[in-house]
Design a binder for these strands. Structure first.
Lengths: 105, 105
DNA sequence: TATATTCATCGTATATTTACGATGAACGAT
DNA sequence: ATCGTTCATCGTAAATATACGATGAATATA
């Protein structure tokens, strides 16, 4: 974009938008579901369940990690990813607050 | 992107990702709040409350309209935008379902 | 120490997003 | 009929996102 105006908005809106951006690709939504379902949280197991290359999946994981929706723990040569329930709950509350605030229904 | 793989994911995830994408910019989150607060829903009134040009705001409105989060009604030379409560509720339910499904908390 | 496994990152190509000013279409008012 | 208002769209520029293969770093094992 020409020049970002993002910083001119309020912090709550910026943060919620960041979470929304992290959820704005079906691969990343599916990754959250996979992490919840799977016992093994290795990247390889996730790659096997997605129609994407390992490097692409790694980028999607990075995006989820960027907003702390997931965290990665090193286990030898592997990395165990898991959902960060604190941030997930914060995200849920943020969306609910927005929707309830904005919905006259 | 090289080639989109989006169609290889399931429909529910794709649709939720589309909603998330529409909410992935603070201007669009603020627009929803503005539409809720304001009596007048003219584009000009929205532009006045955002640090963006009229054409940029129009693009953000288009993105929200694309996923039916808002609808526009022509009133003479003006257009009255308002929130679509049906889609908003669907979005809220979609996010809640995801978060509850994925959160072991 | 050499090898295999696991994963992030680099480099790259293309698509999309974000932003603006300029223009044009539609309508009401003069 | 002309003019002002309102808004979408076009054209454009720059940033970001999405995808891949190749490479490299880190660890465990032989």
């Amino acid at each position: 974009m020409a020049v970002s105006k993002t910083e001119e908005f309020n912090k709550v809106d910026i943060e919620l938008a960041e979470i929304a951006k992290a959820l704005s690709h079906p691969a990343r939504i599916k990754i959250l579901k996979i992490l919840n379902d799977l016992d093994s949280c290795m990247v390889g197991s996730i790659v096997d369940l997605l129609p994407l290359s390992q490097s692409t999946v790694s980028q999607h994981l990075k995006e989820l990690k960027r907003v702390d929706l997931i965290k990665g723990e090193i286990e030898g040569p592997k990395i165990c990813y898991c959902i960060n329930p604190i941030v997930l709950e914060k995200a849920m509350n943020g969306f609910n607050k927005l929707f309830l605030q904005v919905c006259k229904c």
